[in-house]
């Protein structure tokens, strides 16, 4: 959903099928997508579809990324742990291991969109509008960035959600905690 409009829906509850169908439907051309872990796939696709909808030109890439979630990269961490538990069958996957940090997804988005801006990934017990508002406003006020892509991207087992928004100095909706929570709760 972008700005209240449904752009893709799929009744398939299995994440891998859903995200693959969404990737194809949204015509996202990025072969490395299929090498990402689930959290990165979710964050990458959500960010890409939102930024694409803004029709930004290549120079408009001074966009900071401020993401957050609850489960960190636990879903991938568990897979990695399972691969190193048994000493007799000790075959950790390098591809899984490189995704055992939640902020890796920010790197994937930055590579695709050629962003050289600030990025941070925070872990909270719950959706934290106050933090997103303070951090993003501070970056904009101090002119460290022109836009901030903020939000919450959480993945654990087969439960997942992605809520992202783009904030800049002048916008239609005021960037305060009430509005952020209101938009998040529409989900």
């Amino acid at each position: 959903m972008i700005n209240g409009n449904v752009i893709f829906s799929d009744e398939n509850e299995e994440f891998s099928t859903f995200i693959k169908n969404a990737y194809k439907f949204l015509k996202t051309d990025y072969p490395k997508f299929f090498k990402m872990d689930n959290l990165s796939k979710l964050a990458f696709l959500a960010a890409d579809v939102l930024l694409k909808s803004e029709n930004l030109n290549e120079e408009e890439n001074n966009i900071a990324l401020i993401f957050s979630n609850k489960a960190s990269s636990l879903n991938t961490d568990r897979k990695h742990q399972a691969s190193i538990e048994n000493e007799a069958e000790y075959f950790p996957s390098p591809a899984v291991f490189v995704y055992t940090l939640p902020n890796i997804c920010l790197g994937e988005i930055s590579i695709k969109r050629k962003l050289y801006s600030e990025n941070s990934f925070f872990i909270f017990d719950r959706f934290n509008a106050e933090h997103l508002q303070l951090y993003a406003n501070n970056l904009l006020r101090s002119e460290k960035t022109e836009k901030v892509l903020c939000g919450w991207v959480d993945f654990d087992e087969n439960s997942y959600e992605a809520f992202l928004y783009l904030v800049e100095k002048e916008g239609k909706i005021e960037h305060n905690t009430e509005e952020i929570n209101r938009l998040y709760n529409i989900l």
């Binding site: 090498k35 075959f91 950790p92 996957s93 390098p94 591809a95 490189v98």
Partner: peptide
């Protein structure tokens, strides 16, 4: 990273 995966696969 793929190269490392192939090394693990050989083992």
């Amino acid at each position: 990273i793929d190269a490392l995966e192939l090394i693990v696969m050989l083992d």
